[in-house]
Design a protein around this nucleic acid. Structure first.
Length: 357
DNA sequence: ATTCCACGGGAATCGGTGGCAA
DNA sequence: TTGCCACCGATTCCCGTGGAAT
């Protein structure tokens, strides 16, 4: 967002190629997977196939689908739509699909059934819909609803395909099993290639050596997103310290800082209620559920006093806690009564002031 | 064996919003 | 424009389950 001035002495010359939603011109080292995905989506009989794309966070599932979709629309004239489903309800997903399609957007309070009808009306040719971050959607009925639309096929993007399929109902499972495309972490040299492409555009010429890129790729264990963010943070730090070339010495700080930024961003996207629970855990260290509730009861009223909010019930706290875990902000270790919660990184703090002491 | 309680599914409820008819 | 209604997302209430403590 901050327009980067092109200063002579800055190593970081273009932030945009490091943004999470940056779409690389070339997709490196995923040709096999792109082909597999396109094959899965090919016409067989009277309709197109569906696909289940899976793999750990940050290894390029979304980018893979975007590339495949571009080919589908450029070369086959197939219409495509992508919906980000993290935390979304069935109705929201439906509405988002419609929003992606040409035509008027549905109103916020359009009944779900009407949304399905609108969708059927609006689809008049082959359409592929990608449901990104669809882990929570396995038990939802959106999939069945989408599957009922003729000429529409679906790409589900999730982390754990077995868990997803196990939770889905039979009809959905049948349509998606057998066409799954798994992405793994990149190899060290592969990720170094990817980082190199970003560095060519985003960093000053010759600012970073190949061995530094490989060191980054190694440190992040082949997770592209972390590698790219680490490279950016490393360049920032190097700029601050006045280096002309990126030294290996800043990488550890950079990796931590990158992770911290991602988490801080996640925390900011949640409500104050989530953040209050988080802040209690951050200040107190590890707590068991009972201790967390007690502490919350002690301080919540006061912490929220100057805002139009009141403390929430235990069940809601549990739901919020689940979300904090989903967002990789809090870890739950242990089982049952002995389970403990703790924040992943105490350096990640809510940006709003919450006085929890 | 009995009690305790975290957990999480599910239904009911609340506050806010948009469409629609008068 | 106003009032009504359906809807949504967020929250709360209720409750069954199962492991742990007594």
């Amino acid at each position: 967002m901050p327009a980067t001035h092109h200063r002579q002495d800055a190593m970081l010359v273009d932030e945009r190629v490091f943004e999470d939603d940056h779409f690389p011109r070339r997709l490196l080292h995923r040709e096999h997977e792109v082909r597999a995905l396109l094959r899965a989506l090919e016409q067989t009989g009277d309709r197109r196939g569906d696909a289940l794309v899976h793999g750990p966070s940050g290894v390029g599932k979304t980018v893979l689908v975007r590339h495949a979709f571009r080919r589908l629309s450029d070369q086959r004239g197939v219409q495509t739509a992508r919906v980000h489903c993290l935390g979304a309800s069935a109705a929201t997903v439906m509405r988002e699909v419609l929003t992606e399609l040409p035509g008027p957007d549905p109103a916020q309070n359009t009944p779900r059934h009407d949304l399905c009808l609108m969708l059927r009306d609006r689809v008049d040719g082959p359409l592929v819909v990608a449901l990104d971050e669809a882990d929570g959607l396995a038990r939802s009925d959106v999939l069945s609803q989408l599957f009922d639309v003729p000429e529409l096929s679906v790409v589900v993007i999730c982390h754990d395909p077995d868990a997803w399929l196990a939770a889905a109902d039979t009809k959905v499972r049948r349509r998606l099993s057998g066409s799954d495309i798994g992405l793994d972490r990149y190899g060290m040299t592969e990720l170094a290639d990817i980082l190199d492409e970003r560095a060519r555009v985003g960093l000053a010429d010759g600012a970073v050596d190949r061995n530094v890129l490989e060191a980054i790729a190694d440190r992040v264990a082949g997770v592209a997103r972390n590698g790219i963010q680490t490279l950016r943070e490393a360049a920032r730090i190097a700029d601050q310290r006045g280096h002309e070339r990126l030294p290996v010495g800043v990488l550890e700080d950079a990796r931590e800082q990158a992770q911290r930024r991602i988490r801080t961003h996640n925390l900011q996207s949640l409500t104050l209620h989530h953040q209050l629970l988080y802040e209690i855990l951050r200040v107190e260290g590890a707590l068991q559920a009972g201790e967390l509730h007690d502490r919350y009861d002690e301080i919540a009223a006061e912490a929220l006093a100057d805002r139009p909010l009141t403390p929430v019930a235990k069940r809601t706290r549990r739901r919020h806690l689940d979300k904090l875990v989903d967002y990789d902000l809090v870890k739950a270790v242990g089982e049952n009564r002995n389970r403990e919660y703790r924040v992943c990184d105490e350096g990640v703090k809510p940006t709003v002031g919450l006085f929890v002491e």
